[in-house]
Nucleic acid binder design. Structure first.
Lengths: 117, 117
DNA sequence: ATTACATATCGACAGATGTCAATATGACGT
DNA sequence: ACGTCATATTGACATCTGTCGATATGTAAT
């Protein structure tokens, strides 16, 4: 067979490919979902703000001012980041504290090296 | 000063921050633009197809079938990838050959480590 | 219970995005 | 010059996205 083969959705790690193999559609969708969460400037800034915040965590009220967005909009962005697995949410009293998930992005590194290069 | 400071747009490399510094809005926008190019499953598959193709390059006609999209749509996606700097385009005869830019994504690694962690 | 405050959800809206069919552009062979 | 083929552009369309104001939900203090 001369055509490049399509990898089946990987079970070990994320999107690990043999050389010459093409990423599986399901893996492509998964990757795209992660990148989509990072595709908005405000969300990048929110991640950065949380990561550099005291104790590595921040609540919505800490974030609205620096990004100059309304409270509902920031809440909406945070929901996206949580659903993408890039951030965790912990309710403490009236506040919701968010933390960046370590290595959430690095987890996709295999794709970047084995698929893209 | 107790508040976290905002980094000015970095001139050396991409988005290098001192600890406790927040990414500059311009850098956030730049990063988001790159991630946006990667936020579509079809584009991820196109990148993978090109990278794994014979000689590391492919033309539009090689790509339409595997991704099951029309020629104009593939052309549109390729334009996005070129504009994001993730892929190069070289016209050779009637064909346009695309190649993945090595380290185009890795170039953003400083953000992933210095901003997100 | 009532009040105050932090966050989430809803409804609405403008603008962006992915897709295709039709057409234009451009390069080659005859 | 003409026809053919690969790619790009245009126009149209449905859907998704980011944003806000208004409102609902939930938690804690009084």
């Amino acid at each position: 067979m001369t055509s490049t083969s399509v990898a089946s959705t990987s079970t070990v790690g994320c999107c690990v490919l043999s050389p010459g193999e093409v990423i599986a559609p399901a893996d492509a969708e998964h990757l795209a979902r992660t990148f989509k969460a990072l595709s908005d400037p405000s969300r990048i800034r929110l991640l950065s703000l949380i990561a550099s915040a005291d104790g590595g965590e921040a609540c919505i009220c800490d974030l609205t001012d620096p990004v100059a967005l309304s409270q509902p909009t920031v809440s909406h962005h945070m929901k996206q980041l949580v659903e993408a697995g890039l951030v965790t949410r912990e309710q403490r009293g009236r506040w919701a504290y968010f933390r960046v998930v370590p290595d959430a992005i690095e987890r996709h590194a295999p794709f970047l090296t084995s698929t893209i290069r």
